[in-house]
Design a protein around this nucleic acid. Structure first.
Lengths: 204, 204
DNA sequence: GTCTATACTCGGATAGAC
DNA sequence: GTCTATCCGAGTATAGAC
């Protein structure tokens, strides 16, 4: 069926182009013309596939958020011991983000811009719930197997050290002068370094 | 001189309004009408004070970056021992950002958007140079007074744990349901918690 | 300095031919 | 499905009165 294949291909090119432009410039900065150019089509055809900018944006944003968040719960809720959970989290999350290094800033921006819309449109029921992990932390503290620290603080430390480098990459590149390749190597190392760093800190 | 006071006051109101709008919506999302409304004037008067949006934005952005970056070097270059330097850094940086919690995301965005412009317009000679701090770390590692870790990695851990919570605040608020007041308390605690966390990790 | 009215530009969206 | 041409609103910027 020639027609259908062609449709799919154009639609696919549009989505790819839109992702690139939206993630790079944000909703407000992105231009439908940019997306059309990137996809190798014209604006009219773009509107043929997606009624308006808003709708196209929602699609992309949902895709992005879906890539970043839902997998978290699998790790959060698993029955692994605390240290292993931390190791797995770092390993898997950094791996995913290496493939989409600009997503974190994009998503954080849009959450900040309009938290309510985010909850309504994106988190329709299954938002990240680190509660089990946090209980696990509290329990270990109580048992005395790790040093005293509040679960929120530990969770912040963990997520910050994993996510922030992606958000602040250009800043790091400017200040300490690392290039693309070096950045990748650093992030690769962080998959094991961050868990080690944390465990060294909280282990008694 | 009545006229001059009035000038200053209007200009001041404009700058305050512009800061609020730009930081909240970014360059692309901000509307001159929003800024005018926020300042209690009309668009024409806004253009009387600032020829165009671009110029007004540069002013605000420069102000923001000036608030965030230059002080860093004072700490970076000081002669304090490593642990004290880390403590001071966390304490001072969190204090500054508590007063302007939305600046970090704003600045990171604009650096990402256009790194070259940032270097040209903002960092005219005195960008952050953590090199001395990094050498200090290397030296301590070599002396064997702290565990083996690369300076870049430690610097990333430090900056991530301090800055990221501001950038990701809405995300934390949505996922773990903390409110404004709780966030402030958490950040207050982090002034000492983060240095302690780091030192516990790298101390032999 | 401050306002109202208006010119101009950009970009999202549509009409209509093929 | 895809294109060219065009419309139209939003938003920046200016002219000119007070």
């Amino acid at each position: 069926m020639v027609k259908k294949d062609k449709d799919a291909s154009t639609q696919e090119r549009i989505l790819l182009a839109a992702k690139k432009v939206f993630v790079g410039k944000g909703m407000a900065g992105a231009r439908m013309q940019d997306i059309a150019d990137e996809a190798g089509i014209n604006k009219a055809l773009l509107h043929y596939y997606f009624k308006n900018k808003e709708q196209l944006f929602e699609k992309i944003f949902q895709e992005a958020a879906t890539l970043l968040f839902p997998k978290l719960n699998i790790i959060f809720d698993s029955d692994l011991p605390l240290f292993e959970k931390i190791e797995k989290f770092a390993e898997e999350y950094i791996t995913v983000m290496m493939l989409n290094p600009f997503l974190p800033l994009f998503v954080l921006n849009e959450i900040t811009r309009d938290p309510n819309n985010f909850v309504k449109k994106i988190w329709t029921g299954d938002k990240p719930h680190p509660q089990k992990l946090m209980q696990q932390i509290d329990k270990e503290v109580k048992k005395g197997t790790i040093k005293k620290i509040s679960a929120v603080q530990l969770l912040m430390n963990l997520t910050a050290m994993i996510i922030f480098p992606f958000v602040a990459r250009p800043m790091y590149q400017l200040t300490i002068g690392i290039n693309e390749k070096e950045f990748r190597a650093i992030m690769e190392e962080r998959k094991t370094l961050v868990p080690k760093f944390i465990i060294d800190s909280i282990r008694k």
